[in-house]
Amino acid sequence: MKVVKNFTFDFTPNWSSELKNIASAKPRDDAKKITIDNGFIDILPNYNGFGIKGKLLSLMKVLISILKLPQKSKLFIQYPIQLNYLQFFLPFLLSLKQIEGILYVHDVISIRAPQHIDAKTESKFFNNFKKIILHNNKMIDVLKPLLNKDRTVFSLNIFDYLLNDDFTENQNQKTIRDEIVISGNLGRSVFVKNLYQIKNNKFHLYGPFYENEREDNNVIYHGSVSPEELNDRIKNYDFGLIWDGDKIESLSNGDGNYMKYNNPFKFSAYIAAGLPIITSKEAGIAKFVKEQNIGVLVDSLYDLDNFRISEVNYKEFKNNVLNLRIKLIKGQQLSSILQKILN
């Protein structure tokens, strides 16, 4: 009988209803499902880490589970690790059991919030893993000089977005493509308060924590919905906008700067809804958007006032998006990397 040597686990936090509606849990849940579909065994299937007692019990359970793993197993771990204490024990356990750790990185804290941890310290933790999956090549360029040379680093390019494939394409013919959707934590996206300055487009906002005292005809707030409902709600718009920071002229401040290196999960949500993309030329996803021919790159959101696209070019974007969509909803981005690691 063949001994299973590929394992996975993750801690799913007790998200509030508001946070669930910005898809905080979905990328982690999807990654776990994809690993299981690729033959990994979940060593923490019933996480109940609510309250101090629940977290301590879950910590003990996963520590014992790792100690019981066969020598030289592979262990898929998602970062940031939701149970902070585990981060102190993992390097020792991986070394003790000669486990090949696979680190799947959702956020690099030293880039997103350098006041909390510096790149050297964070990379030291990353170096405990033989295989590291990062967002894109721009993120790899920042971190690779700090990683051990024998570490294998993979570029994900875009997060998967698992869905049941009941998609119906919007066949509407339009002379002007000006309906743009923005989703996510709107409380962090300060730039949305200035969208009223862009008169020739309509912006449709979805997500929690939206506060704006202005009433603008071109900015419409639709409330906060679940990731599953969002997919159905936004599919009839023309573009999905990926932008961050407090300015519409450029990516700025903490979140705007982080967007120069990361793959926002809303990118995947828009593709799953069949929407071409509008984003900054500075964005970490810009190269992928251009190579895949799935959207428009701009210097500033002011560029949208004069932006027009032919229906022929729009259909080309749309077809490329729909082809990419098939891969994302089936989990093929992560699956392809896992197969390289396993084979």
Rank of each mutant, 00 (worst) to 15 (best):
Y104M: 11
I81R: 10
N218C: 02
S155C: 08
D141Q: 13
D244Y: 07
P276C: 05
I285H: 04
Q173Y: 14
N319F: 14
V4H: 13
E311G: 13
D232C: 15
F209H: 08
I277H: 00
L67F: 15
V181L: 12
T121D: 04
N320S: 12
V289H: 03
K130V: 00
Y161F: 14
L103K: 05
N253K: 14
S65H: 15
M139L: 03
I180K: 07
P27C: 07
S250Q: 14
K318I: 06
I22K: 06
I180M: 04
P114L: 12
K68W: 08
S224F: 10
D37Q: 11
L156Q: 13
L75D: 04
K144S: 08
D238T: 05
I36K: 11
I34M: 10
I176C: 14
F7W: 01
F9D: 02
Q292P: 10
T279Q: 15
N306F: 08
I132T: 11
N257H: 15
S280I: 06
A269G: 02
L94I: 04
F88D: 12
L90K: 02
L44V: 02
F7V: 06
G256K: 11
E228M: 12
K174P: 08
K2N: 10
S336Q: 14
N218M: 01
K174E: 12
A119R: 11
R233G: 05
P114Q: 01
Y221W: 13
G284C: 01
Y196T: 11
L156C: 12
L86Y: 13
K61A: 15
N137E: 03
I140A: 06
S17F: 15
N218I: 01
K131Q: 06
P114D: 04
N236I: 01
I271L: 03
F191C: 09
N21P: 03
V3S: 04
R308H: 08
A269E: 07
G39R: 02
F126V: 05
P208A: 09
G295T: 03
F129S: 02
